[in-house]
């Protein structure tokens, strides 16, 4: 398809504009659809008995594509089992690896990937991944060894966590410590309105994590976090929020929280959890134009399996 005639779109950060070309948008859309298809296929493969267990990132695609646009070589991701779209987008994983992990007992090593499935366990190390940038930038002792490890401490750690995971102590401990240390940690909270079998109102004070994080928000150039609230289906808003947050984290080591709301989880928690999600429900597609808060709960049982196995991919330095 020729797209040359289409105008580019720009999102603005304090010091630059991020160009989002029409081709780029289409490529992102294509990847979102592929990632969604992979999620659906993985569930089917488990249901028919071709794979033992799977857990995937359907309903979380768009914001991850936006996050990937702000991810640069040298940056780190510390995430969990919903981030396949991001991993595809930055080239750290692909469909072959995704399905190799799904069919784990034949094709891959019998070892879980380096993502962490225990809820919020990816948070503590994200503090250190971000803190290292501060050390490489500010510690004179490291200037002699830093060249192979850091570009003047510009590397961001992109941590991801689900809305329900924010109830864990490890989330709060990490959040507080990164605010104290002022490190380039960018925390994305993928919020689909539910956690385990119950809605946000039963998990988070006031039912909104960004609402209760207001106290962490910085005033002017003071200490604290940049706090962004964006809708998970709003591609351009996500691109802009990530671009702004990443620039401030990179240049000024300002940590940020991106509360990404109105995400979905059409297939339930994992292949071992029951799902009564209606495919006709408005939450079922990343490009759904229905942006209203759905009334249909995603009925799910708490799954112990979901805390100990993962089909997500490795973390690592982004080499490309």
């Amino acid at each position: 398809m020729k797209t040359g005639a289409r105008p580019d779109t720009f999102v603005s950060t304090p010091s630059a504009k991020l160009r989002v070309s029409a081709d780029g948008v289409i490529a992102d859309y294509r990847l979102a659809v592929r990632s969604r298809a992979a999620s659906e296929l993985s569930r089917r493969e488990v249901l028919v008995g071709n794979a033992p267990f799977g857990i995937s990132g359907e309903g979380k695609e768009i914001a991850q594509l936006a996050m990937a646009r702000s991810f640069r070589p040298g940056d780190w991701r510390s995430g969990y089992y919903r981030d396949q779209t991001f991993m595809f987008a930055v080239g750290l994983s692909d469909l072959a690896q995704y399905f190799a992990q799904l069919y784990a007992d034949l094709l891959a090593r019998g070892q879980s990937a380096s993502d962490l499935s225990p809820v919020a366990a990816q948070m503590p190390r994200s503090l250190g991944l971000a803190w290292a940038s501060k050390l490489y930038r500010e510690s004179p002792a490291l200037h002699q060894v830093g060249s192979g490890f850091s570009r003047n401490g510009e590397e961001i750690c992109f941590a991801t966590i689900g809305n329900a995971g924010t109830s864990e102590g490890l989330f709060w401990e990490t959040l507080n410590a990164a605010g104290v240390l002022r490190v380039p940690l960018l925390i994305s909270i993928w919020d689909d309105g539910y956690g385990i079998s119950v809605p946000n109102e039963l998990q988070t004070t006031k039912g909104s994590i960004s609402e209760v994080l207001r106290g962490f928000q910085r005033a002017g150039d003071g200490p604290g976090y940049d706090l962004h609230v964006v809708k998970g289906w709003d591609y351009l808003a996500c691109c802009e929020a990530y671009a702004i947050a990443a620039e401030r984290a990179r240049t000024g080591h300002v940590p940020a929280v991106l509360h990404v709301t109105e995400m979905t989880q059409p297939q339930g928690h994992s292949t071992s959890a029951s799902t009564h999600t209606s495919r006709a429900a408005p939450r079922s597609h990343p490009s759904s134009s229905n942006r209203s808060r759905p009334g249909t709960p995603i009925a799910r049982r708490p799954s112990t399996a979901g805390r100990c196995s993962s089909a997500a991919s490795t973390i690592g330095p982004c080499g490309s």
Binding site: W76, S78, M123, P124, R125, S126, L127, G128, L129, A130, W131, A132, L135, Y136, L142, V145, G148, F149, S150, E155, C157, G169, L170, E173, T174, A177
Partner: peptide
């Protein structure tokens, strides 16, 4: 917990 986590992240980055 985050003292140990801080160590893990720093070690992953070469420290």
């Amino acid at each position: 917990a985050t003292i140990v986590g801080q160590g893990i992240g720093a070690a992953l980055r070469g420290l």
